[in-house]
Design a binder for these strands. Sequence first.
DNA 1: ACAATATGCTAACACTGTTAGTTTTTCAAG
DNA 2: CTTGAAAAACTAACAGTGTTAGCATATTGT
Lengths: 193, 193
Amino acid sequence: MARQGLTRPDIIAAAIKMIESEGLHNFSLRELASRLHIKAASLYNHIRNMDELYTEVGYYAISELKKAQLGAIAGKRRGEAVEALADAYHRFGKERPEIYKVILSLPMVKNDAIHRAGFDIVEPIMAAMADYHLTGEQMMHLQRIFRSILHGFISQEEAGCFRQYPVDVGDSYHMAVRGFILLLENSEKEAEA
Amino acid sequence: MARQGLTRPDIIAAAIKMIESEGLHNFSLRELASRLHIKAASLYNHIRNMDELYTEVGYYAISELKKAQLGAIAGKRRGEAVEALADAYHRFGKERPEIYKVILSLPMVKNDAIHRAGFDIVEPIMAAMADYHLTGEQMMHLQRIFRSILHGFISQEEAGCFRQYPVDVGDSYHMAVRGFILLLENSEKEAEA
DNA sequence: ACAATATGCTAACACTGTTAGTTTTTCAAG
DNA sequence: CTTGAAAAACTAACAGTGTTAGCATATTGT
């Protein structure tokens, strides 16, 4: 068969495309190979296994999310920056739900590189909080809390857990973010006291 | 083969046991059948398919979680009740992580009964907030926010996302809960104004 | 006692990820 | 140029998955 010279990045790009269009649930190596006009076994010339491929897709997803967040907070400070970051995060989760899910399934595989990638998630959050006068310890806690709110909200919204009541989901989200800003201001006072 | 007269509840109970001991990831119908001294195909005399079995396990998990939460807030009021509920939720997620995961994967399957079960999750939260003077609309928003914090925190902790910094994860959790209580008190003031 | 129902079986299908071993193409070095 | 190594693809197979169809047998109700 006339070979087409596929490379590792080609496979990763195709995997991303397939996951986004067909859903993470319907992803399979055989179908991916078929789309590349290749047999499934041939994929193993470029990737070690499926987990590694997922991990690679996850790196892409994290970098995309980071880019969106940093772009959103550019030139903004304090509450404005925090709200912009939250909005960007929310938009990413809603517009690219399948890719977002890959990030979540990522840390299952214990890996050093993933640990490093974790900082790419934290970095924009730290940047958004930078203009608050907080201790290092406070920032570590608050960063976890903010991530919990963002991720918890989006994953439950995505799963359809918020359809029970007739109040707007976007309003709930903004109320949550404003609540976090309240906590930021409160922590600031505690730090100064 | 001498039949043993298995019933649907038997299968569900065995599935719960297997998921808790072997992990949701390692669950399979063939292994489940083997533990019941039965062939996999025979399971289909009692359940329609695997999704239905997961759903049934999910109902059990939700009722267990609800029981733990209601027990925790019994006789407590306001902030004390909210903290007790959060602790119970956290304990459930840490002590029974596999069963907890089933709850999360539940709403993927669109189903009326699941929609009803959703209220079993909301009920204890509403009860814990009952002594705050809030409008109905506020409670709907705040219940979503509280669930986001609880779920977001536990799922990220479970996934190992909180190992990046040397501050105690339990401290972060309590800070998050106290932050939510702050938002509750703030909302109360807004409602009275 | 007989019919109906419930419980179980075997065999098979269509998938999945993955490995081993083999062929073919490409490309670089002598 | 040719030769040899590396890269990219193949076929065939294995062990596993959920699921269905069709058949056998045991229990239960009439």
